[in-house]
Design a protein around this nucleic acid. Sequence first.
DNA 1: TCGCTCATGTAACGTGTTACATGATTAA
DNA 2: TTAATCATGTAACACGTTACATGAGCGA
Lengths: 196, 196
Amino acid sequence: MDVKTLCLGALSLGDATGYDIKKLFEDAFSHFFVAGYGSIYPALEKLTEQGMVLYQRQQQEKRPDKKVYSLTSFGREALVHELINTPPREKSRSEFLVLMFFAHLLPSQRLAEVLNEFLEENKKHLQMLEELSKCADQSAGIKFTIAYGLAATRAAIECIEQNREALLRDAYTTQPVADAYQPVSVATLAKNSKNE
Amino acid sequence: MDVKTLCLGALSLGDATGYDIKKLFEDAFSHFFVAGYGSIYPALEKLTEQGMVLYQRQQQEKRPDKKVYSLTSFGREALVHELINTPPREKSRSEFLVLMFFAHLLPSQRLAEVLNEFLEENKKHLQMLEELSKCADQSAGIKFTIAYGLAATRAAIECIEQNREALLRDAYTTQPVADAYQPVSVATLAKNSKNE
DNA sequence: TCGCTCATGTAACGTGTTACATGATTAA
DNA sequence: TTAATCATGTAACACGTTACATGAGCGA
């Protein structure tokens, strides 16, 4: 599943410009799909070529021109087809957790910064989701994604607040690289060798 | 942050082969970073060129040859430098949540399948994390990543179990595409227009 | 005057995914 | 005999990121 599909999905909610769709990615889609202009505009172009969407150019006073896109029936079919045939995966890439995994290699000051920064971001995100959950006249599916995002974000915040002290206690305070660290064998952390 | 950095990180735990590192990605790294052989082996090759790792070829009886990689001191410095300069981001791409967002476009049978499949996967993942958390002689950082993974996975499972019924109630049961769906305006879901 | 909102796009680059290729050993 | 484990790799392709480019209006 790619940005094109999400654009079709966005347009299934109503006509919109690329700019509008970008906002959707920043809000309603934000906790499960990331995309910027650099992928949205080319996606809309391709969808147009393929006949899945079409647009009307709208001139505006005191504003740049708009291209208001709408879904064609072919596009809607393609969207449904894609959705039905997409297996429910989830993958995340968390630089934050990488930093935590290797926290013993970070100066404690930096570690503290990282924790604060990440907590703040999560709290902001939580607020946004709470806002979203207020305009509650959406489908059960949309409500679910918000509930899911709220649950995940709250769990993250709680987990950080509960473990922050322990993490900082363990961090090193001297300037140079911590070479005193006792290496853990790779095998210890690769459970696959035995079970699963 | 890319696969190369994670490979350096893996080797900071002890010497390993590409194959070993892959297992680490499947276990200890699994909830925050995804990589397959197709990115791990080329990464190790590049790191070798750059003098960040080196390897010893080991012949084995009844097994293919191994390349056992180890971190150089330059590699360790590069790792630390990279970690210190990486902002704590987190981004996920969840096909599952996309499907939920557009659940009203799915036949209810498929929706039920999707929910079950995703729940099962999460339960397996939970088990794996519980296993990992048992070999508990790791650093505070590593323990934290496991605790975080556990919290997130448990929250996900709970959220699905609590909302499954409501989701299925809302799904359509007729064969053809649900065109009766009341469109929600894109603007309603793009809170950015007003706040944040 | 500073920065934000609206509005669209391109081009180069980096990165990762997928599928393919090989092949012996071992446990069920 | 089937599937899994061990073990390494390549090549084509798809995809997305980043930075750049433009420019008016509006509110503080």
